[in-house]
Design a protein around this nucleic acid. Structure first.
Lengths: 228, 228
DNA sequence: TAATAAATCACCCGAACGGGGTATTATTGA
DNA sequence: TCAATAATACCCCGTTCGGGTGATTTATTA
């Protein structure tokens, strides 16, 4: 779409495994149309460094490990996409985990590669994703096909996909449901036997966790992601 | 699963394009672990020949052209799977057609390959499908990924995705979408080039039609009923 | 046990919301 | 053609919301 032949693509690597991260960084340095602008070993460090990054050095493509200590790569991807939807994210994993593929797609990752993908393919994927593509390892593609066949799709059954995103507390989850029902804080307070102030506090915390700032947005997100 | 190293796999080809069919047949003959037991140029001929096939010569894997004259390859796959669910079917196509991918999967095809797939990959796919895999061309895998991302899944039939309850006017529908996006009246007004007062009036009318009295409730109803 | 985190309650403020009106134009359709 | 119906715009008023700040209590766990 927007890639000139010799444009330099700014790449970022988020990976906790020291050796893997170093080797990958070194390898990418051999490709002169790529520039590794930011390397982090955790989501926290990534965001911390990102905050100190100048606009013209902002990463365009991020290779994100799906298994990160602390905030997972999926959570990090979600947060990043909220703020910077224009950034392309490729998830990296050693696993062919069903759930995580869909989760990654849902939070906005466009690509999904196994860690043993040959470096040339990784580099091609970076280019491809910049052009609007969705690079994906063949092994994962097959998995995906199987999932689609069995109807195990993300928008579908709530029953089969049970986990709770945004790690909302039980109380928060409960209150969120009331919000979805269109109730006011006062009404909710009466229902759950809490002070309206407390309900309000909970809702503020829910907003923070979900990265929204209104009831409508919270309802939409909650329903879209089936957390009710 | 059930493949011994030197088992001979019986393969069938259903393809109306004469030259392509012949070339493919010839190519497969070079692989001694494959045996082309049945070649047809249409679904009708295929079933006709199949009826006269002895049990011990029954095809185990079928390479089926998706674009057949008369009954399509999808229709043929459906019928064949009814009678012989144990047969593995790989759909062959020159197109990367969205609908057909899902249709093929739905009727029971396990693999989906582009016709320009290198012969070696075709042969590998035949082996793979016998082992319970789902061979798929990378280009198609990407398409599939995009489809899953956009939620354009076959399980949500196109029909029920479209209906518009509450007979909201186009303007109201438009504004409702903005509400679902969590926007304020003022923001919506700017987006749709209307006065905030007008937006408010519209929203009040939307509430009346939907029998709700808050944004959150409207969002929930709209999403539950797929108005958007 | 000491430090931390989570849950609860409280207050202020400005902005946005929802509900009740009224009025002016099209547009249409009987 | 004339009446009904949208669509548009505006006002008032009381309520609710969202954000910021901070206190107290209760697990939790390091």
């Amino acid at each position: 779409m927007n890639t000139e032949e010799n444009e330099i693509i700014r790449v970022s690597i988020v990976e906790d495994h020291d050796i893997f991260r170093k080797r990958l960084t070194e390898l990418l340095h051999f490709y002169k149309h790529l520039k590794v602008v930011l390397v982090a070993n955790s989501a926290e460090q990534f965001f911390e460094k990102l905050g100190r990054t100048a606009e013209d050095n902002f990463p365009q493509v991020i290779l994100m490990d799906i298994e990160l200590p602390g905030a997972s790569g999926i959570e990090a991807t979600f947060q990043l996409k909220e703020k910077h939807p224009e950034v392309d994210i490729i998830m990296f994993t050693v696993f062919e985990d069903d759930e995580r593929i869909f989760e990654s797609i849902q939070v906005g990752a466009a690509g999904y590669l196994l860690k043993d993908t040959p470096i040339d393919d990784v580099v091609n994927s970076i280019k491809e994703i910049r052009e609007g593509g969705s690079p994906i390892s063949p092994a994962i593609a097959r998995k995906l096909l199987t999932m689609v066949k069995s109807g195990n799709t993300p928008d579908k059954p709530a029953a089969e996909r049970k986990e709770v995103p945004f790690d909302l507390s039980p109380a928060e989850l409960n209150i969120l449901e009331h919000v979805i029902d269109g109730k006011s804080n006062k009404e909710i307070a009466e229902d759950v036997f809490l002070s309206p102030w407390t309900v309000k506090t909970h809702i503020k915390n829910i907003y923070k966790k979900m990265h929204v700032n209104s009831r409508a947005a919270a309802v939409r997100l909650a329903l879209k992601r089936n957390i009710v």
